[in-house]
């Protein structure tokens, strides 16, 4: 088993914040990832501009979602999670 694969496994279970290309942001737990970078998030929440009042943020639960790699602009994690993933390096 290669080191890189082990490293991928370390991301599993982390709460990711994914910025989508259409401006929405998703929070959720990384549950599955494939070799192409497509992701399955559990307990997903979607952040978007409130359609009724675009000055405000709108949050809602969307559950288990698959996120194609091409729809993602960036992925980030909070500092604590980052520390847990990368501490072994």
């Amino acid at each position: 088993m290669s080191a890189a694969k082990i490293e991928t496994e370390k991301y599993i279970g982390a709460t990711l914040r994914i910025k989508l290309k259409d401006s929405r942001v998703l929070d959720g737990v990384l549950t599955v990832i494939d070799p192409f970078g497509n992701i399955l998030l559990s307990n997903g929440y979607e952040y978007s501009l409130d359609r009724i009042n675009p000055e405000k943020l709108h949050k809602r639960e969307i559950g288990l979602v698959s996120v194609p790699k091409e729809s993602m602009e960036s992925i980030s994690v909070d500092k604590k999670t980052h520390g847990n993933i990368f501490k072994a390096k």
């Binding site: 890189a4 490293e7 990832i33 399955l40």
Partner: peptide, 10 residues
Amino acid sequence: AISTNQVVKS
């Protein structure tokens, strides 16, 4: 590093 037809999952 993930092999084709494989996924890494919880």
